[in-house]
Computed example of a mutant assay.
Amino acid sequence: MDKRSVFKSWWLPTAFAAPQLLLIFLFFYWPAVSVVKWAFTLEPPFGGAAEFVGWANFVEVFADPLYWSSVTVSLIFAFCGASVAILIGLVLALAVDRELPGSDLFRFVYILPFAIAGPAAGMAFRFILSPERGLLAPLNALYPDFWNPAKYSAHALILVIIIFIWKWAGYTFIFLLAGLQSVPRSLLEAASMDGSGPIRRAIDIQVPLLAPTLFFLLVTMMTEGFVGSDTFGIVERTTGGGPNHGTEVMVLRIVNEAFQGLNYSGASAQSIVLIGLIMIFTFIQFRFIEKRVHYK
């Protein structure tokens, strides 16, 4: 039986843990407490005494129709981006897992987009899908305004979702490929000998065994779609929340409210509501979806 290592003095483990504890306090607990405090006070933008206003900041936020528009946009962005990225990652992982000639090259190509920063991807797709000079420009020449993200909010929302999917499909591909490689090859060989094709083997054997990985990706991708740095970077660099607030996701609205409008109290209230929404969706996922996940 292994003996447990014990420090002979209290100051040595404290010294080792102090830098990490200091970072956690400075970058997690202190901001979190400040956000809660600001949400219930009227915080002056240039310093001074804060006035306690109770729930007034939340009442003001909920009375703003543009805020509810940002909630709707965030829900569409998170659900569509997460589900399609997972689906594409699953298809790519199933294809590469067959180890056909050139599979190693395709693994590198599929993972590469995830290494690109969200704002850089947004800037690139602004040119790739530009209505004047992009890939859809010939269709716009035949059918004016067939694709115009600068004019139509629905087109702009589709654009930022496409960029998010393009970048994060590689992330889901990594986990799903790792999960597929843990599936016993004997099961696939037995199914193949029974006459099952690749699609039937994927539906009946591989995908059910990937349930824990799919559930993990669902929770992770939904959270990233709501509050991820790439979500903010893609939308801010590509559309800036426009046109007509059509792509103004909640995280972008919070940043603009705080650093452009200098409304720290309103931004803090919106942050707490956003955290509450994430907690609700995470609870729903663990409460109802995890029941269908089998870990053994």
Rank of each mutant, 00 (worst) to 15 (best):
P19F: 03
L21C: 14
L22F: 13
F28M: 14
V35E: 07
V35W: 10
T41Y: 10
P44S: 04
A49T: 13
A56N: 13
W68C: 10
S69Q: 15
S69H: 11
T72Q: 15
S74T: 10
L75Q: 04
I76W: 11
F77R: 00
A78S: 13
G81A: 08
L94Q: 09
A115I: 06
P119D: 08
A121H: 10
M123A: 11
F127L: 10
G134P: 06
Y143W: 10
D145V: 07
F164L: 13
W168E: 15
Y171S: 00
I174C: 06
A178S: 12
L180I: 15
P184Y: 03
A190N: 11
A191C: 12
S192P: 03
A202V: 03
P208R: 05
L209F: 05
A211L: 06
A211E: 06
P212V: 04
T220W: 05
T220V: 08
G225R: 01
F226E: 00
R237H: 08
T238R: 00
T239F: 02
G242I: 02
M250A: 08
V251M: 14
V251F: 02
L252Q: 00
L252N: 01
R253P: 02
I254A: 01
S265P: 02
A269I: 03
F281V: 08
F281Y: 10
I284A: 15
F288R: 10
I289T: 11
K291G: 12
K291S: 12
Y295L: 15
